[in-house]
């Protein structure tokens, strides 16, 4: 088996509004559109993912919360109906997904090897969380690429933030090792919103875009500052600022997916490609891509040298 590699990472946030706005057949509620800037951003991300032709999508979601350990979906096929507990009016989605159990097991083993508590989720009746499903739908609505779903051990909330994020760094490194050992061409999806200040009331017509705007100016400024740095490839500076960004903009990246993804990619100092930015019920969301093939950091040539 040739050595596997991560071919790209995406910041792929999961507001269920985006699925609602798109009106796919899997989602029960129907809309008159909305959040087009973000949905068009995802269209561009879908096109680039199509070109990458990965074997597997790995997604880390803040809405599968596990207090004890980092858990990995470990049932070959999972299906059901996912209803968002906060926005049940917008998201009631029938899903059916295939899990790359072999890679998930490798991720779990490598996490344990790096001193983390890893656990496989083997219960076939388990209902996959709406964050995982929304991100996967927005990236690949065909559902034809196997996935590895990873839970959010709420360590950054429970421990001191830096300690919690250090665990996510280790989780990322262990995920990379698992991908390399199992020979997969993998794409990572960090299912995170940026600034997470949100409206306290939902507009009467949720998709009425005359009501959509950033909830706070400070949060918006923070998002723009971080996106600018990411677009310039100033990754070190982004991670230096990350705790302050999280603190001051209530950023959902606190839950760790963003750190996990960058650690797995070895913090490449390369410009991220912004596919688009938009707010959803006031929160800041960016769809961004780090294509390691285009950057010459992954690809067949490199694998041969390795």
């Amino acid at each position: 088996m040739s050595e596997g590699e991560i071919v790209a990472g995406y910041l792929a946030p999961h507001p269920p509004h985006l699925v609602y706005g798109e009106n796919p057949p899997q989602n029960e509620p129907k809309s008159r559109g909305g959040w087009e800037q973000l949905r068009w951003a995802y269209e561009r991300a879908r096109a680039s993912l199509e070109e990458l032709k990965p074997d597997v999508l790995l997604v880390h979601s803040p809405h599968w919360i596990t207090e004890q350990g980092h858990h990995f979906l470990g049932v070959k096929q999972l299906s059901g109906k996912s209803v968002d507990p906060i926005f049940p009016n917008l998201f009631r989605y029938t899903f059916d997904l295939d899990v790359d159990v072999e890679l998930a097991e490798a991720c779990c083993e490598e996490a344990i090897a790096l001193g983390l508590d890893g656990k496989m989720m083997r219960n076939p009746k388990f209902r996959v969380d709406y964050g995982t499903i929304t991100t996967l739908h927005m990236m690949r609505p065909q559902w034809d690429i196997p996935v590895v779903g990873i839970s959010a051990n709420n360590s950054p909330y429970y421990l001191k933030m830096e300690e919690g994020l250090e665990e996510m760094d280790r989780l990322g490194k262990s995920t990379r090792r698992a991908i390399e050992k199992t020979g997969r061409r993998a794409v990572l999806l960090a299912s995170n919103t940026l600034c997470h200040y949100h409206f306290r009331e939902e507009p009467e017509i949720p998709e009425d875009m005359t009501k959509e705007h950033p909830e706070t100016y400070e949060g918006y400024l923070w998002d723009m500052r971080m996106i600018e740095l990411l677009r310039k490839g100033e990754v070190k500076e982004v991670f230096r600022l990350l705790p302050q960004f999280i603190e001051e903009s209530f950023a959902e990246v606190k839950s760790g997916a963003f750190t996990w993804m960058f650690a797995a990619m070895d913090y490449p100092e390369m410009p991220g490609e912004l596919h688009g930015y938009g707010t959803v019920i006031g929160t800041g969301n960016a769809v961004m891509e780090w294509n390691l093939i285009k950057a010459g950091l992954a690809g067949s040539g490199l694998t041969a040298i390795a």
């Binding site: 599968w64 083997r122 009746k125 839970s151």
Partner: peptide, 13 residues
Amino acid sequence: GIHVDHNWHEFGD
């Protein structure tokens, strides 16, 4: 219905 706990899925439904 049947609920599976997010953290304690190993102990059943």
